[in-house]
Amino acid sequence: MEFNSCFDIIGPIMVGPSSSHTAGVVSIGKFIYDLFEEHPDEAHILFCDSFAETYQGHGTDKAVIGGLMGMGTDDSRIKNAFENAYKAGMKVIINVTKKCDYYDHPNTVIISAKYNYQFVKVGGVSLGGGVSKIFMINEKMVDIPVSGDNNPLKRKDLIMYDRN
């Protein structure tokens, strides 16, 4: 069962316009911010499938960037996430692809992020209603819910170090 609480159904409190394409994605970006305890210096964002088709209209790009900047789903600054990232000096590259190689769901995003000499590659899926989970970290399949207030991870263990 993917939905465990009444607040998975009534909620999240969020900025629009789409719980799956905006709110759920903020949580995926925020996962990386929480890993680094800082916004990355650089993030490569790959939108797959439905995300690839509609990310601009749903503000999915702003949502993932807002999350990477440490914002929560109800942060009204998400509207201006691009300006925020630019001012903070976070470099963002966005690409799209038809199908996700790792996970069969239309709402998937792969983010490769760097902070100092640390590097992490994360796959996230937004399941609808703002509920999302991480399904891949550094090519290893995982199953970590990231929406709501249950983030049980020892984050430091997950980061790889970039040889460069």
């Binding site: 159904i9 009534i10 969020m14 900025v15 316009p17 719980s19 905006t22 109800d74 609808g128 703002g130």
Partner: peptide
């Protein structure tokens, strides 16, 4: 992009 509550989704 104002604040709302998803019930069950934002749409």
């Amino acid at each position: 992009m104002d604040v709302i509550v998803a019930t069950p989704t934002a749409g």
